[in-house]
Design a binder for these strands. Structure first.
Lengths: 131, 131
DNA sequence: TCAATAATCGGAATGATTACTATTTATAGA
DNA sequence: TCTATAAATAGTAATCATTCCGATTATTGA
């Protein structure tokens, strides 16, 4: 049984997706690697990266680029924004009412086709404020 | 005469700022390096990076992180969004009416302090569409 | 079960950025 | 203007996330 027409089943990839679906912390490749080491003692970091890219390609996971030197990933596929704490680095999801006419407004102005968008907020999170 | 309390004047840094202020292409460090090579034959790429970081620190330049493996920079300090073409990589600036109540809405919901935000749109630019 | 070939591991390569050090240059004060 | 101080530079080495590669292992359709 093949999961899709492109890729065979892989225990490692399944575990990566499962880990991403079970956390809110928007992990790095290295965090995933550390979590998996016990179950897959011979795991290679390259395997984590390759499978993350496959999952992104399959639209099961999204890559977050948030000003760090490294990428982070999430399995939350719903429309949402990120608030990135500039002190502790924590990323918090939240939903926001984006006016859908905004997209067509941009498309008309620039005569382009918008496929997706990203709204990020940077600041100091609740926890860091209270310190 | 010192330009600010932190840094002495440097011909290289002045030229970097001048280049950024004179272009719309949101250059990379390497592009700046190439442009400067004739005027500064012994220029070091490290000098470009160090000065770009100083200019960002001085709020004269902004760093753009737009999904590439490398950073890009701009001297357009006004509030604006970016439309990044997923085919050719061109970044186009445009102004958009961001409801200012949006920020306070986020701050209230998450009990955080927002310092800045970034709204990016990804798609296919006018030029690439017509090909 | 078996052949085909995708996925893995381990390590080497890549590429953007930063760090280090000797030398050069800008600046403040005499 | 001259000089001492320390910042800025050039050149190169180091760093670090990510990708690539070749040999081995695992998954799949027949």
């Amino acid at each position: 049984m093949i999961t899709d027409n492109q890729h065979r089943k892989s225990k490692q990839r399944e575990k990566i997706l499962e880990l991403l679906q079970g956390t809110q912390i928007h992990p790095t490749a290295n965090w995933i690697y550390d979590q998996m080491k016990q179950e897959f003692p011979n795991l290679s970091l390259g395997t984590v990266y390759r499978n993350l890219n496959i999952l992104v390609e399959q639209n099961k996971v999204k890559k977050i680029i948030a000003g760090s030197t490294f990428d982070r990933f999430e399995a939350n596929l719903g429309e949402h924004c990120h608030m990135i704490c500039e002190k502790c680095g924590v990323i918090t999801d939240f939903e926001i009412g984006i006016d859908s006419s905004l997209i067509s407004q941009v498309e008309e102005n620039l005569e382009c086709k918008i496929r997706h968008h990203k709204f990020d907020f940077f600041g100091i999170c609740k926890k860091c404020r209270n310190q």
